[in-house]
Computed example of a mutant assay.
Amino acid sequence: MPRVTSPRRPVLDPLSIVALDTERHVAGAGWDQPPRLFALVRTATLVQREPQLLTRLSIADQAPDALTAIEQEGLHQSSSLESILGRIAWPPDVDGCAFVVERVVVPPDAERDLPSDSDAAVEALARHPDRQDVRLLAAVLRDGTSVCLIRQRAHDADDAVATGTDLAPGLVAALQATFDD
């Protein structure tokens, strides 16, 4: 079962912290955004390369295992999710990645009577009275650690997100595959 995280409920592990910070960064730009990809790098590694960054970091950001998310530009928006992720390979100094995508969620029975034409199916889902717009963030590290966050558009104002490790197993596996040699 997902856990709900809010500003009043602290999270302490570095991957969850960077995932929450990244999701809030994306949320600041509103809804109806294209997919976004972030490299996750140990903050200490960045500071070694660029010492001037130290002046902009909070005490929490300076923790030994802290991670920094670096947005990757140039995703091919017209490509499928599988195609986008299938072309990604990370250099050794990238410790993990996070992918953010918006989706429409409907009750399982709503998918039973969908038209076979994909465009018509998408239109039917968009019109479904029980649809929920969600933003999904999946983040993984090279060692296999993962976390997923889901924010519902209907509950956007309260800044609460559901968190868990098994909310999007297919997406987690696809992100983890970007680190396979």
Rank of each mutant, 00 (worst) to 15 (best):
A126V: 09
R49P: 00
Q132W: 01
P169H: 04
R131C: 04
A110E: 07
L67C: 05
A174P: 00
E102P: 02
D133R: 06
E111I: 15
D166L: 13
F99H: 06
T43I: 02
V100F: 10
S58G: 12
D119G: 14
E71V: 10
D166N: 14
W90H: 04
E50L: 12
T178K: 02
W31N: 08
E50C: 11
Q72T: 09
R131V: 03
P35I: 08
L171F: 09
G96W: 00
A98D: 05
P14C: 02
I70N: 14
L20R: 01
D109L: 13
I59F: 13
P108S: 13
L114D: 08
F179Y: 10
D109H: 15
D117M: 10
L75M: 10
A168D: 10
A63P: 02
C97R: 02
R131S: 05
I88Y: 02
V104R: 12
D156E: 13
L12H: 11
V41E: 00
P64E: 10
D158Q: 09
E111F: 13
Q77W: 11
H155D: 13
D143K: 06
V41G: 01
A29H: 12
R9Y: 09
D158I: 07
E73Q: 12
I88V: 13
Q48S: 09
G74I: 05
V18Q: 01
